[in-house]
Design a protein around this nucleic acid. Structure first.
Lengths: 333, 333
DNA sequence: TGATTTTTTGCAACCGGTTGCAAAGCGCCC
DNA sequence: GGGCGCTTTGCAACCGGTTGCAAAAAATCA
């Protein structure tokens, strides 16, 4: 069924090496044989088997794209950009969907090795660093995107500075004159939540006149945000909340509206991510934008660079975020 | 770096065949050598190279997952389920992200062949059937998920009956006593839009006393829905709309609310898909649910079945949809 | 024209596995 | 102990390519 190198060689009346060489960049072939080969190849509809060639070249052009964030709408955009970006460089994304409860990188390491991926991208803010580290230990060039900053990184990390974002959110609330503010985080054990809380609290420590509190939703989800905010409303809520992320924010927003309160009139909300729905006019969430395109571009650059030079030192690249003004926070002043 | 079959064989003091056989299901190995091999393999951290073995077995366990729907939030769930479902069967999804303007299957065919995928799944309601057909012509077992029903299918098609859905939407509006209804479709050239319109109109043809009209948004997107509905509101809108899909519906809903009108008080809306956000309480869209899990399960079954038996005849499997009652249509009566 | 250099070509080994085949090993029976 | 049938094993060829090397061909130079 499939047409092979040998078929083409036979038809073109040349050796298999000649055929192979016409299909490899920068190999030595005369234009005459190249023409013969290309003609035969076209006639037979030949396309080289990337996997067979990977055996000798050691390159599959396969990149493992590992994630467990298949519920956060932001990640549809993330997958879109990753797959496009990889394709544009002639690479192929091999998707690995980890269940959220998975904590052992072992199975995914084996998987990535079986398919001899050239590199891997861990795209998740909730997977522990041990995943990326396990891949690196297995000799796979890897970058952890949307990962956590560490001072002595073992692997490339690309993302945002969550502490700085927390601070930014705190300052946004302060500058709008709120006097009782709060953090509504994701799961307390998530490092992203911890860092965001840290920055938020740090900003507010400089304003002791402002009352501040914190609580945590059970997940980064709409329902969790809604449930938690409903609870807070019954206990007497703060004037404004920094919510762990946009989905959570929208859940909280929904609870506020359901309680017959207005946002930002009665309660202000600022989120984090700026996913597509946050800009929808009937949601219109004030939030902090994560520069997704830049993060993904840098991630791909890093993984490709490390494939080419495996001795390359681990880097951390953090991108600045910015507040997107919409309708869930009262005006500045 | 990588440890190979030969290394294991040497260490275990057996031939490479013995090692190969301990790792292939149902091969003839004594328990004694199996034990030796397994011990050596574990000590060296060996895992077989799936690509090398594919050379002789002809199976890569790679399935091409081809889509151009990276903007419809429903598809995050689709990708989640597909990747999980494939993984559960020991298969690996190789993601192919087609730009929406891509109309020539040629490049993707070549790609799928280069990586010798065992099969392919076209997951899109907007890609023309020519893609799946081109894959099949190239000898790749394929199923078109969320594709269009045809009477003489060349490839497996799994999805919903869009005509029936249109009818169902029409009947939902009729039974609620609306007297002036309309279809607000996606792009007019999309076959899914055409079919839904067809069914909708057919249902209303049985009720000549009801006034019916149709218009089309420029895309299946929030903005397109919002723009189109804004236009309709200025021209004097119908009492209730069947919108092409949920994103479109939410855009339309947003326009209604922005105009200071109430939904369902002034204008009713019913969507199609039942994506996650439609259930969010601050959206609360009445819609028709597409049984995504079933569609995906059947798609995987079909592609796996066809890999095992390539002579298998093309099938069409359509799943029934159902109306999900929420808050954007007036109560039955 | 012939010698020399450069380019092009094919041979054959190899990448990491699998598998048909025949030989070796084993258990069992007489 | 020898003969029989069944299981296990290793050899070697093969899957579809790539590549170092030396020979052949072409280009360059004197």
């Amino acid at each position: 069924m499939a047409v092979t190198l040998k078929d083409v060689a036979e038809r073109a009346g040349v050796s298999t090496s000649a055929v192979s060489r016409t299909f490899t960049e920068g190999a030595s072939v005369s234009s005459k044989t190249r023409a013969k080969v290309e003609k035969a190849a076209k006639a037979l509809g030949y396309s080289p088997n990337a996997l067979a060639s990977s055996l000798t070249t050691g390159r599959t052009k396969l990149i493992g794209l590992v994630s467990n964030n298949f519920h956060n709408p932001l990640f549809l955009e993330v997958f879109d950009r990753f797959t496009r970006g990889l394709q544009d460089r002639g690479l192929r994304p091999l998707l690995v969907n980890l269940r959220v409860e998975e904590t052992d990188p072992e199975a995914s390491v084996r998987m990535l090795r079986q398919y001899s991926v050239d590199g891997a991208i861990v795209a998740s803010s909730t997977l522990p660093p041990s995943f990326a580290e396990a891949y690196r230990a297995a000799g796979i060039p890897v970058v952890h995107s949307f990962g956590r900053f560490t001072t002595a990184p073992q692997v490339h990390v690309v993302g945002i500075d969550n502490v700085a974002c927390g601070r930014m959110a705190g300052e946004a609330l302060i500058s709008r004159g709120y006097k009782r503010v709060a953090f509504l985080g994701g799961p307390e054990q998530a490092t992203s939540t911890q860092d965001r809380a840290l920055g938020f609290m740090a900003a507010l420590r400089e304003h002791p006149e402002i009352e501040v509190s914190a609580s945590y939703a059970s997940a980064y989800s709409f329902d969790a945000g809604r449930v938690e905010m409903t609870k807070l409303l019954m206990q007497g809520p703060a004037e404004a909340y920094f919510c762990g992320d946009d989905v959570l924010s929208i859940g909280a927003l929904s609870a506020v509206q359901e309680a017959g309160l207005s946002c930002p009139g009665d309660i202000g909300i600022i989120g984090l991510n700026d996913m597509q729905m946050s800009g929808w006019q009937n949601i219109n969430l004030t939030t902090i934008r994560q520069p997704v395109a830049e993060i993904i571009g840098a991630s791909i650059d890093l993984v490709v660079g490390t494939v080419e030079d495996p001795t390359r030192h681990p880097e951390t690249r953090l991108f600045p975020c910015k507040v997107i003004e919409r309708g869930t926070l009262r005006a500045l002043g």
